[in-house]
Design a protein around this nucleic acid. Structure first.
Lengths: 127, 127
DNA sequence: GCTTGACCTGGAGTGCGCTCCAAGGTGGAA
DNA sequence: TTCCACCTTGGAGCGCACTCCAGGTCAAGC
């Protein structure tokens, strides 16, 4: 046995087995995960490392289709590093924009929270 | 004319008219928006202010159903301020968790970007 | 009076990202 | 050997948040 089962991989990665099969079918992985003689998937270390990167991209909001494009570039081998870098850079920028936006909106919510806290404090004192 | 049209409201809020109708039908607003004699919606300032808050909540990832619960509390009037505050606090915490997670994952992506940049730099020099 | 265009309604459709299901094969323990 | 949990596949279904559409109403301008 040279790799781990889909259940073990799912457990380690914090994904469901269904999601792992879906990612593979959808072209997000670098290769079809190798199978045992009985057809069971066997994930090895590089597979797991790649999927960890995929979860980083997904968790920061990269759409499946962009992850697929990135995976395709990596699969294509050396020579397209600029393109990969451009994709990552673009994603980085969009994440930063999103973070700034969420932070700004969170400020407004904090303000609202402050108002309620003050209101309740006053209510408390007059009770 | 005491309020603005749905098109003007949509424009000011950065939402589509369809979305505004959807929010109203779904119970996200504090009241059914008043209509002109011909049945056209007329948004006034308080309506717009409320919807701005709704967009803050939505933009920070609060699900529609929670916004609806919050709207219901506000509609219910004075006396449930603790509950509103609890809802906002819970949301705030979840936003902070999300921000931390995204920031952490972004760090991993930055690291990857650094690797590619170094690679390309070396390639550049040896060319 | 007629056209134009913004608005109305109820309801269907869309895109995304999974998630679940049925039907069947596999592998280690009792 | 017989479980039983785990795996396989293709494909259907789901929840979310819109987004679009058909068919109709109304007010204003020409």
């Amino acid at each position: 046995m040279t790799g781990v089962t889909i259940a073990a991989a799912a457990d380690e990665l914090g994904l469901s087995a269904d999601t792992l099969r879906y990612y593979e079918k959808d072209g997000l992985l670098l290769r079809p995960v190798p199978r045992s003689t009985s057809g069971h998937r066997q994930y090895d270390e590089p597979d797991l490392r790649w999927i960890k990167l995929v979860t980083c991209l997904r968790a920061t909001g990269m759409p499946i289709r962009d992850v697929r494009r990135y995976a395709a570039l990596v699969r294509a081998g050396d020579g397209n590093e600029e393109e990969r870098l451009a994709l990552l850079h673009a994603h980085r920028e969009s994440v930063l924009r999103e973070l700034a936006q969420v932070t700004a909106h969170l400020g407004a919510i904090d303000h609202k929270i402050g108002i309620y806290e003050h209101k309740l404090e006053v209510l408390e004192q007059s009770a």
